[in-house]
Amino acid sequence: MARYTAPVTPLHADNTPCGHPVTSTGKPKDPASGCTGRTHYRAACSCSWSTTCDARILAADARTQHLRTHLTAPAA
């Protein structure tokens, strides 16, 4: 069985990855960092599936549901 990975990535409004430290509301902790803040999250599978959500928990749930589709059905 192939191994699939589907990380959840925080994104800026322009869809670039955000690795900056942010507050609980998504605003940058350091205003001088050039970060515009996190606005959404993308879950992307190595099979080319992806989805974008406003909250990390929603992206993580979508990722989990998608990864379950890769499981093979048990033998009868």
Rank of each mutant, 00 (worst) to 15 (best):
18 C>N: 13
67 L>I: 04
25 T>N: 14
63 R>H: 00
72 T>K: 10
75 A>T: 13
32 A>Q: 05
62 A>Q: 01
59 A>C: 02
22 V>M: 02
65 Q>H: 00
51 T>I: 12
22 V>H: 15
5 T>L: 08
52 T>Q: 00
31 P>H: 01
65 Q>E: 07
13 A>W: 07
62 A>E: 09
39 T>P: 10
19 G>M: 09
35 C>A: 12
50 S>P: 04
20 H>T: 14
11 L>P: 06
30 D>W: 11
30 D>R: 11
63 R>E: 10
21 P>C: 08
76 A>K: 10
50 S>Q: 08
56 R>G: 00
12 H>C: 15
76 A>M: 05
36 T>P: 08
45 C>F: 08
74 P>R: 14
12 H>R: 15
72 T>E: 10
59 A>W: 00
12 H>Q: 12
50 S>H: 08
50 S>R: 07
63 R>M: 02
21 P>Q: 08
14 D>I: 03
62 A>Y: 01
60 A>H: 03
22 V>Y: 06
51 T>S: 02
6 A>N: 12
2 A>I: 08
2 A>F: 06
52 T>I: 14
59 A>F: 02
50 S>Y: 05
7 P>D: 14
58 L>N: 14
36 T>I: 14
36 T>N: 13
30 D>I: 12
3 R>Y: 14
8 V>Y: 15
75 A>C: 04
36 T>R: 14
21 P>G: 14
76 A>Q: 11
66 H>I: 12
68 R>H: 14
76 A>N: 05
61 D>T: 12
19 G>T: 11
17 P>K: 11
70 H>K: 07
10 P>Y: 13
71 L>D: 07
40 H>Y: 09
27 K>G: 05
41 Y>P: 03
72 T>G: 10
14 D>W: 05
59 A>P: 00
55 A>Q: 06
10 P>F: 09
69 T>W: 04
52 T>L: 12
31 P>N: 03
6 A>V: 11
28 P>C: 06
66 H>P: 03
6 A>H: 06
29 K>G: 05
1 M>V: 13
51 T>A: 02
72 T>M: 13
32 A>C: 00
3 R>Q: 14
56 R>H: 05
61 D>C: 09
75 A>Q: 11
20 H>Q: 15
55 A>E: 09
44 A>P: 11
67 L>C: 11
15 N>Y: 13
68 R>V: 05
44 A>L: 04
52 T>A: 08
50 S>V: 00
76 A>L: 13
45 C>N: 00
14 D>K: 08
49 W>Y: 05
7 P>V: 05
72 T>V: 06
74 P>L: 09
55 A>K: 13
24 S>E: 13
69 T>G: 15
40 H>A: 12
58 L>M: 10
71 L>M: 06
24 S>A: 15
67 L>G: 03
